[in-house]
Design a binder for these strands. Structure first.
Length: 583
RNA sequence: GCGCGGUUAGCUCAGUUGGAUAGAGCGUUGGCCUCCGGAGCCAAAGGUCACAGGUUCAAAUCCUGUACCGCGCGCCA
């Protein structure tokens, strides 16, 4: 790069041209609308193109093409990076990067190595990414896996672009659901004790893992539980159950951690909701809201819809509400139940305030699409508490439809027949699972076909990309076998063909792809980029002999392959997918 | 009823925060192994970007409305 990349350089040039015309009175002083420096789709339209003349034409009271010519008249005279430029179409200004500059790029990619594509865009700013946060009441399913991979790769992207990333998992270990888990364990324990099936409690997790938890109980604790089950009149029941519940939650968390480790995903901090309660975090958050006047006691309107809920028993009651409507939400949201207990929403905003108070002014959450309804209210609360807008961005990851031979696999946690994330990872492998999850934008629903992923792994795009990498490594091995040497000449001296230059141009866009993927929170762009790069390489490889007898040609092509290999490796690293040297 | 997301080739989906002639994979049809890894490559066919208006030099992209699909919607977590 040697300081600036071509895109930034050209942007600076155009900025300079514009301010010169402002000085000459052709364009008015002051703020002007923004213009862009783009990569045109058509090769004929150059390597870079700006719409500046079209955007600014009416401010200069000139036709776009005339203004473009006027702008170009001020272009720097001495430089070797741009061969030529032109005014085209309705008024685009197109720039053509010199071949010399492109050839030089190959050497620079190789020299940059694993740092190629990294940037300091984020300027070390702290950002917290909260993801997965699956309830510790059962094994993770495939949908959790998608969120996990999306979040992990997003973190890698933000890290690569210069942000100080903190990864956090929020443990919902304080609610009714974990109580249900504890009671489920007790129920299974009783079944084992009496050696027969018993009618389950109304709320109950039926999965086989609950039995595993019973077997994993430390003997003294299990004895205590059994004693209480046999003789429940003893007032110790609540404390026994509490201990069992905590053990169960820890067991499930260990299980979840194992799944995440298999996918090479880790967290800086596992934040316990219970600890929030213990530190009076909710009280603290509510005090702030109250001090700012965002809480009022009010009546909540009867909710509309809610198909399968009977609404006959709705009763309007007085309770503390957060004035979410002042910050763009649809209705005010309850913070406490009429009996004084906090709602889940209260705990949630307290957690987000806690993040902010730990010094994170930028928060990103990865949520399943089924939590989409909570985005506005949490954002509203954060704005209410901090006085700052846009602290939190939420990336909603759509559902995963598990299929088998094209037919949907119906899963229900209640029936206990769901396919776990672990099943899938063990069958398909971490690389394929990770890559597959990133072959769709997060907003798109994703079909995951078990048979396709397992039985026909060759069709998986990850192999296509990995194969390109392994192929290049293979060239190196072959060269060694044949006793060929690299000359060590500067690859810039080799006259690349048009196809080879196209490949270089595509390698040159890699850093821009990484930056935009990070800024738009769209990790899937890496997968699409890598597939395209692999395709270009395979085509190139098929049509050109790399290990040519002519040392000059061989050296130039080897350098290009090396650069391609580096970018493939860097991109795969960002995705957390291995770049194998042979397959 | 309301909110969020979606609608692009036969199927599954990309489309760089408005750009020039809308792309890929799978599938279909037909080709490429004396040569560095055929897990590969080449070619062909396939489109009213759901529909109707609007905004402007320019709309798959932004705005409004309509249709259909998914998710969500209590004082649960």
């Amino acid at each position: 790069m040697q300081g600036v990349c071509m895109k930034d350089l050209l942007q600076q040039w155009v900025d300079g041209m514009v301010s010169r015309l402002q000085a000459e009175g052709v364009l008015p002083e002051g703020a002007l609308p923004g213009y862009r420096m783009d990569r045109p789709k058509e090769r004929d339209h150059g390597d870079f193109s700006t719409n500046a003349a079209m955007v600014l034409a009416r401010f200069a009271k000139m036709k776009p093409r005339d203004l473009a010519a006027r702008l170009l008249a001020t272009l720097p005279q001495t430089q070797t990076d741009i061969d030529r430029w032109e005014v085209a179409g309705p008024g685009f200004i197109n720039f053509f990067v010199s071949h010399r500059r492109l050839r030089q790029q190959v050497g620079e990619i190789i020299a940059a190595g694993s740092a190629y594509g990294r940037s300091t865009l984020g300027r070390g700013e702290k950002v917290m990414v909260e993801f997965v946060s699956a309830n510790p009441t059962g094994p993770m399913h495939v949908g959790h896996g998608r969120g996990a991979v999306t979040g992990d790769v997003l973190c890698r992207l933000l890290q690569a672009t210069g942000y100080a990333v903190h990864r956090e998992y929020y443990i919902n270990d304080a609610g009714r659901q974990v109580d249900v888990l504890g009671r489920s364990v007790a129920h299974r324990c009783r079944e084992l004790l009496e050696n027969r099936s018993l009618p389950p409690p109304e709320e109950f997790y039926p999965g086989e893992y609950v039995v595993d938890i019973v077997h994993a109980l430390p003997p003294p604790l299990r004895k205590e539980l059994e004693a209480w089950l046999v003789n429940p009149r003893d007032g110790q029941g609540e404390t026994v159950l509490t201990t069992v519940t905590r053990f169960a939650v820890d067991w499930v968390l260990q299980d979840i951690r194992k799944d995440l480790t298999q996918l090479d995903i880790s967290f800086d901090h596992w934040f316990s909701e219970r600890s929030l309660h213990e530190q009076d975090g909710i009280k603290h958050a509510l005090e702030i809201l109250r001090a700012r006047g965002w809480i009022h006691d009010g009546l909540l309107e009867k909710p509309k819809g809610g198909a399968d809920k009977s609404q006959g028993d709705w009763e309007a009651r007085q309770q503390p509400l957060f004035r979410a409507t002042l910050f763009g939400d649809d209705v005010d949201r309850p913070l406490q139940k009429p009996d004084g207990q906090y709602t889940y929403f209260a705990a949630d905003i307290a957690y987000h305030l806690n993040k902010y108070e730990r010094g994170f002014a930028r928060l990103v959450n990865i949520w399943g699409a089924d939590h989409g309804g909570y985005v506005k209210r949490v954002q509203a609360a954060l704005e209410g508490m901090t006085g700052t807008k846009d602290v939190l961005k939420v990336l909603l990851v759509q559902m995963v439809n598990l299929t088998r031979q094209g037919q949907p696999v119906r899963m229900s946690k209640r029936a206990g027949n769901f396919v776990t994330l672990r099943d899938v990872v063990e069958q398909v492998g971490s690389d394929a699972v990770r890559f597959w999850f990133l072959t769709r934008a997060s907003v798109s629903q994703l079909d995951f076909d078990l048979d396709l992923a397992v039985a026909r792994t060759n069709d998986n795009p990850v192999y296509y990309v990995q194969y390109a990498h392994a192929r290049i490594c293979s060239i190196g091995r072959t060269m060694a076998e044949k006793g060929m040497q690299e000359t060590g000449d500067d690859p810039a001296s080799y006259p690349y063909s048009p196809d080879e230059l196209d490949l270089v141009r595509y390698l040159d866009t890699y850093p821009e792809m990484v930056e935009s993927a990070a800024q738009h929170l769209e990790p899937h762009r890496i997968a699409f980029y890598l597939q395209e790069l692999a395709a270009m390489f395979h085509t190139y490889y098929n049509g050109n002999r790399i290990l040519d007898d002519d040392p000059g040609i061989r050296n130039g092509r080897l350098a290009l392959c090396r650069a391609v290999r580096q970018v493939l490796a860097n991109g795969l690293e960002l995705m957390g997918v291995k770049a194998p040297e042979r397959m």
